[in-house]
Design a binder for these strands. Sequence first.
DNA 1: AAAATCATGGCAACCGTTTGCCAAACTTTG
DNA 2: CAAAGTTTGGCAAACGGTTGCCATGATTTT
Lengths: 347, 347
Amino acid sequence: MDRGNRPARLRPVTITDIATRTGVAPSTVSRALNNPGRVSAATRERVAAAARELNYVPNSQARALSSGRTGTIALLVSDVTNPFYFGLIRGTQQQLKAGGYAQLLIDTEDSGEHEAEMLHKMRQSLDGAILAAPRLSERPLSRLAGEIPLVVINRHVRGVPRVMIDTPAGIGQAVEHLVSLGHRDIVYVSGPERSWSNEARWHAMRAAVERHGRRTRRVGPFPPGRRSGSAAADAVLNTGATACVVFNDLLAIGMLTRLRERGVAVPADLSVVGCDDIFGADFCNPPLTTLAAPIEEAGRAAVAMLLARLDQRPARVLRRAVVLPTHLTVRESTGPVPSRAGTVPGP
Amino acid sequence: MDRGNRPARLRPVTITDIATRTGVAPSTVSRALNNPGRVSAATRERVAAAARELNYVPNSQARALSSGRTGTIALLVSDVTNPFYFGLIRGTQQQLKAGGYAQLLIDTEDSGEHEAEMLHKMRQSLDGAILAAPRLSERPLSRLAGEIPLVVINRHVRGVPRVMIDTPAGIGQAVEHLVSLGHRDIVYVSGPERSWSNEARWHAMRAAVERHGRRTRRVGPFPPGRRSGSAAADAVLNTGATACVVFNDLLAIGMLTRLRERGVAVPADLSVVGCDDIFGADFCNPPLTTLAAPIEEAGRAAVAMLLARLDQRPARVLRRAVVLPTHLTVRESTGPVPSRAGTVPGP
DNA sequence: AAAATCATGGCAACCGTTTGCCAAACTTTG
DNA sequence: CAAAGTTTGGCAAACGGTTGCCATGATTTT
């Protein structure tokens, strides 16, 4: 059939091709395409027509080399499989595509060093980066922000623009909810120690409980995965608490599984509140009461902030922070306090 | 504190810097770094030392421009939020990182045209691409494969290397399982019409049921999301079947939710089998019996195939296809056929 | 009508790296 | 010891754009 004349990855069309075809200089072609005000309407139109006919696609490498702009933004997440990031990936992807940027996805494997190293190595290939819940400590993070435009999500670092999901405020709602159901002994199930969000949530929790004249404790820390749910569930049962607020939904879902295994009824014996409202929180068993976070919106906001910064036009007001509200979504993992808080059923 | 002397995004170190420092020509530096056999051990060492001291990071744009290799591989998925792709994203990410490549994630929004267009535009910025379950029709797909090295997942196109997850074979297992439980009337819940996998699964299903001297039907097509689960569940109930095999887990989970709402007990009234074993299939309610697919492995295999192709060394045997087996994972959404297949309970 | 301004297009340098080709120095071989 | 071969390093030309600067001609201002 088609043997012989395979086009063999033909040479791509360049501005020089357009230039010879239209009889102008390559520089004029470049300007006609990117800097429309700089050439006459007539030539601009001729160039555009030629580009269209030849099916011209600019070579982003070459463009990057001379202009310094690569058209690529990286999204760094600590673990691509954590469903929390799905919304982020999607939100940023959408907004980046709308802005004409490509998204480079990087998994930092939960390591601050990885974050720093990757970012440093790629800084010349990127116009900017979005760091989701960075593990990196404050110092190197600000240093990095000097090397390359950065927006961080759920982290507060001086001088680095940020998008915050206000889960701490939501935690107040969660505590009100639990207290109104009669719970007096509520524990916090802690996520990773190095996580900024974890500390913020814990502090919010303590403050909220103290407003009711009570004290709270925390168990953990636990890695924020489903696997850790077993240990977390056992630890909570040992405290004798009637309710818990969990660092994130992933961990909470893991706990739910374990509690079911152990024959502990949720919410009859123990109420569980998660954070983030990830994929699965609504169809696990029982469906999880959780703090719904506008994750996709956070992604979009982060991109918007970053692109605003890359935009040359000087007279722009640049927001230094965006705070997004969360709200409690009540499902079936929370309920009235058990009539007699007794001992825990055996396994 | 640190006012005044902010380094203002300082000029990155180039091979020329290394060259002047070691007293050799830039070309020698380039060779010392990338083509070690080409220079003497002594200079190579001196260059390496200088590079280390100066903390040199090669500019990938410049390298790409002259060498044609970009060090970037794209992964195209039809919808980043479909949990099926999480494993793929992770698997490819791992293997690419190991091979020193960066991963560009592209959402094609379920459109074949998007696929073609994006790929065409980016072909100069990519060394290759992995297409997950492409929607594109066969013709343009082979044409694209001529423009840029490609590996497709779950799709059979002549001349394009592929990784196949052998769900059709697994469907046989699923049917055996259901038949052994007494089911005689099993329907297939169809995914998108344009999906190659969907057709493959349907054919396998029909063949498997016919081996038992029975016939089967299908309902649908449905978009492969949870939202479609309601319609799918209702359609299945109308058929009066006692069991169904569903195009994918996402749809199956959606059905489970709907069935629960309608008071249909799973598996007492209806058995449900999904495909893929995505995140959530194990903790939904009831946990889903499904065809577990080695998705991460598929991602790794696809990367391995692609990189083998990019590798220059000629005397390599290039696999044209990899087929990965699936197996039935029995959980709690399948059970014995109802004693009297009666009418469906009302809503 | 001369001077100043403006719009438009071309020239050429540059971005940082790779690579074909050549030259020098050194090593082997006959 | 000369001829041939082998290392090793340098020169310079790409790769495909962008952009500062200049020249030309047209337009406006005084």
